[in-house]
Design a protein around this nucleic acid. Structure first.
Length: 664
RNA sequence: GCCCGAGUAGCUCAGUUGGCAGAGCAGCUGUCUUGUAAACAGCAGGUCAGGAGUUCAAUUCUCCUCUCGGGCUCCA
């Protein structure tokens, strides 16, 4: 039979040959290095028989394409180790994920795992790897499979679900085709239902580490059993594993909760309750600068600034539909003066009230309202996380009311505006998601959904943004774009969202008078840019690793006199800096200079200026820029002020190099 | 909310097989007057998260509550 290769060449092989035979035919080195094959675009085991005419690509152990399979196979090895150490363990699912893999187990007699157990599991895994057990694929008809897996409660449920028509992607990954059930066996005692493919044998694995134990509900359903989930990471080689572990260490160092404490920005007094923070002067300064910048941009961007109260009567939330659809996320009601009030979980109904407050003409549209609106949401207590997820947070919220004709242009300029503001904070790497009309019930006719969705798509194209389409992922009231940013160490954060809404204008019966005198219904667009000021601040801390650029730094420069003789001059320089509009301070020279330098460096100040005899004589300063070890001496005060002025005006970033990811 | 883990000085952390609670940094007071990442001495700082139980004795063991962390779910 004849097999084609990706480079266009072809090879003749004997009938019944496998991808491994093909690799061996090409060369022994390739045969040794190959882990799996992609046959006509589908990944299969190396020992799967090939058919005549197929195009076969061999995937070797150093290829990133092998990662998914390596992780999947490693998950099997972990399951085997856990079953051997805890006989009677039921296996649920064990997929590969972004950085590694996990497997969900139900241990016998309600046993649970803790991190202390990971070492023993990992040791057992290494023994299995050392034993180099082959992964053997077997297939069964559905009925046979049901009988075969009758004692495997979770596996049997999966078989029933995938053969009962209720397939979804995750389940399909786990068992694949619904007419045949496959399983893999790699010893007399271990097998697991799985579509594969897998690496040829356990000996091909090894660059892994078990990370943590967690609880996870079966099928993510809080009403189903709580399983023990073990997370691990696995890579193609030792260096990649080490690089990943280094990234985690780097991320730990950047943790905004740690830096917020060290830099005295924000704290979470226990007395306030979960997810509630107070902002200290330095954190508040940064926040004010962020907000001021946002206001400036919205002002020049054609937005009208509005304010709204923190609570409103229940009728507002009944009309908006929040009490029907969002009650779980709302704070409990307050009874006052015979009425029921709720803290606001969103700002939109207030902005709708402002729109409805007067008769609107098409000449008023698009009408863009902007508010830094603080909302309260009853997040699960286990879900709050520093500034990233809190129970009270401030949205940089905007609602745009537009005519249907204006919708597409407005969406394009909105997205451009959002990206422009994000870029000012130093984010350059974006990933967008376009969510389209859900299959279930939704409001609005087909035409308007198509127009809005197309408008969002065109906006993404015009912005030249990478995006994925989440078919059916939109809200019932309209399609949306979510924008993820990637921070300095490659983590993704969802920040901005642009959502078209056909529902609220309907519910509140909004209208404007059109040029022909008829009454028309406007379209509403919800837009959050930073999303939540608190979360954005948290992301910035981690993105900058605490090194806020000069335009945001709470103290931009500190002037240190070498000795008491220079204290007056230091004060003089501080006054000059302040007069030029900068945030500067000085310290009394009652400690050695080295110590004062050290303290200031720990505070991650952008500039430390040292002044001594030479500087007093020459009206100069010694400039120590953050991240640089050698001071620049004899810089004139005016030159430094000009330099800082430019750096602030241009919002120069000054990001430190993340610790080299693959450092040995 | 649920599963697992944790809570010791303002911060970072030791420690107690149940027997007077420890360090470094930060703070305060002195001395030192300093040219680039930690001067010296002293002082002060704690209901060992809170409550209950076991015990001659609990920071340590048990239970409950609160808070935090890792997840699940949801989302900004």
């Amino acid at each position: 039979m004849t097999i084609s290769l990706p480079d266009g060449s072809s090879r003749s092989l004997e009938e019944g040959s496998t991808a491994f035979d093909l690799a061996a035919d090409i060369g022994p080195g390739l045969a040794k290095a190959s882990l799996l094959a992609r046959v006509d675009g589908i990944e299969v085991d190396l020992n799967a028989p090939l058919v005549d005419g197929a195009t076969v690509e061999l995937i070797t152990e150093q290829s990133d394409d092998a990662l998914y399979t390596i992780r999947h196979s490693t998950a099997h090895v972990m399951a085997q180790a856990v079953q051997e150490l805890y006989p009677g363990t039921q296996l649920a699912i064990g997929p590969p994920i972004d950085d590694g893999f996990y497997y969900d187990f139900e241990l016998p007699a309600g046993q649970t795992l803790s991190d202390d157990d990971l070492g023993a599991i990992e040791d057992r895994m290494r023994e299995i790897v050392k034993a180099n057990q082959p992964f053997e694929r077997h297939e069964l008809a559905v009925d046979d499979a049901l009988a075969f897996f009758a004692d495997h409660t979770f596996k049997a449920e999966i078989i029933e679900q995938v053969t009962g028509g209720s397939r979804d992607a995750e389940l399909a990954d786990e068992v694949g085709s619904a007419d045949m059930i496959s399983y893999y066996k790699n010893s007399d005692t271990f097998l697991d239902m799985c579509t594969g493919p897998h690496v040829p044998s356990t000996g091909r694995l090894g660059h892994f580490k078990l990370m943590k134990v967690a609880g996870a509900y079966w099928r993510g359903d809080t009403d189903r059993p709580m399983l023990q989930r073990v997370y691990g990471t696995a890579w193609t080689n030792k260096k990649a594993l080490k690089a990943h572990l280094n990234r985690l260490v780097e991320a730990e160092k950047r943790d905004h909760r740690r830096l917020a404490t060290e830099l005295n920005l924000v704290s979470w007094p226990e007395e306030l309750g979960p997810g509630l923070a107070v902002w200290h002067p330095k954190g508040a300064t940064i926040r004010r600068l962020m907000e001021d910048y946002s206001r400036e941009r919205h002002d020049s961007g054609g937005y009208d600034f509005v304010y709204s109260p923190h609570i409103a009567k229940s009728v507002l939330w009944e009309t908006s539909g929040h009490l029907d659809f969002y009650a779980d996320g709302m704070y409990p009601p307050m009874e006052m003066d015979g009425a029921t009030y709720y803290p606001k979980p969103m700002n939109c109904p207030f902005h709708v009230m402002i729109f409805r407050g007067e008769q609107r003409s098409y000449r008023d549209l698009p009408l863009r309202m902007f508010e830094l609106g603080t909302v309260y949401r009853y997040e699960l207590s286990g879900a709050v996380h520093g500034l990233m997820r809190s129970r009270g947070f401030t949205q940089d919220d905007s609602h745009i009311f537009a005519t249907r004709e204006q919708l597409q242009d407005e969406l394009a300029s909105l997205l451009a505006f959002v990206l422009s503001v994000l870029r000012a904070f130093g984010f350059v790497d974006f990933q967008a998601k376009l969510s389209t009309r859900p299959l279930e019930k939704s409001v609005g006719d087909d035409d308007i959904w198509d127009e809005a969705t197309e408008g969002l798509r065109l906006a993404l194209e015009a912005a030249n943004l990478d995006y994925v389409v989440d078919e059916g992922g939109g809200a019932f009231y309209g399609p949306k774009i979510d924008v993820d940013i990637k921070d300095a160490i490659g983590r993704a954060w969802q920040l901005s969202t642009i959502q078209v809404d056909f529902n609220l204008p309907e519910r509140f019966d909004l209208e404007y008078v059109s040029s022909d005198g008829s009454r028309q219904r406007p379209v509403m667009i919800h837009r959050a840019l930073m999303g939540s000021i608190e979360r954005f601040f948290g992301v910035l801390i981690e993105h900058y690793a605490g090194n806020f650029p000069a335009w945001l730094a709470p103290i931009q420069t500190r002037v240190l006199p070498v000795s008491a003789d220079h204290a007056d001059y230091a004060h003089d320089v501080v006054q000059q800096l302040k007069a030029a509009g900068f945030r500067a301070d000085t310290t009394e020279p009652n400690e050695p200079l080295g110590k004062r330098i050290r303290r200031s460096k720990i505070e991650k100040l952008p500039y430390i200026l040292v002044v001594g005899d030479d500087d007093v004589a020459g009206q100069t300063v010694g400039v120590n820029k953050r991240g640089q070890n050698d001071p620049e001496r004899d810089v004139s005060v005016s030159a430094f002020i000009e330099r800082l002025r430019v750096e602030v005006a241009d919002r120069v970033l000054d990001l430190p190099e993340p610790a080299a990811a693959d450092a040995e």
